[in-house]
């Protein structure tokens, strides 16, 4: 169920991001979604890809610092307040969100949100109970 997100340590210097995308492109890996957290000194690139295991291996082999994090993905209907409903549900359940990022695809009208929460299990149960559509790992990788 859990979706594997790849995080890569990005040193604050020109060319680092293209080094990472170069590794992925060379390995034929497709990026589904990405987000970058940056500070003045460094950044963290977070990626959802179609083949997380392969991506992890290749990035590591290229000498990058990588880690794998389990996240959840929700599918939202495209209407006002949809994201608010999800976040309010989590809030009611006392689950804090570490970070989130959204993406869309051309294959459907829905919007997708990747959520990093403290407890994936609790969050999934709460969201499911509220009728929020959750995506499986396979769903996300093959979007």
């Amino acid at each position: 169920m859990a979706i594997h997100q790849i995080s890569v340590f990005v040193e604050n210097k020109a060319g680092t991001l293209s080094e990472i995308t170069g590794v992925l492109a060379g390995a034929g890996i497709e990026i589904r979604a990405l987000s970058i957290a940056d500070t003045t000194d460094f950044g963290i690139l977070r990626l959802i890809v179609n083949e997380p295991d392969k991506a992890l291996d290749r990035l590591r082999a290229a000498g990058l610092t990588v880690s794998r994090t389990e996240v959840i993905a929700v599918c939202l209907e495209d209407h006002t307040g949809a994201l608010h409903g999800v976040l309010e549900t989590l809030n009611q359940a006392g689950i804090a969100v570490e970070y989130a990022y959204a993406f869309i695809t051309r294959k459907s009208d829905a919007a997708y949100v990747i959520l990093r929460v403290e407890d994936n299990e609790c969050a999934s149960v709460a969201l499911r109970k509220a009728g929020v559509g959750l995506l499986s790992a396979e769903d996300v990788y093959s979007l």
């Binding site: 997100q5 995080s7 340590f9 040193e11 957290a37 500070t39 460094f42 963290i44 977070r46 590591r60 610092t65 990588v66 880690s67 994090t69 570490e98 990093r116």
Partner: peptide
Amino acid sequence: EMAETAFSDEV
């Protein structure tokens, strides 16, 4: 150097 064992995806 940022080693993998110390790396977290949280800023």
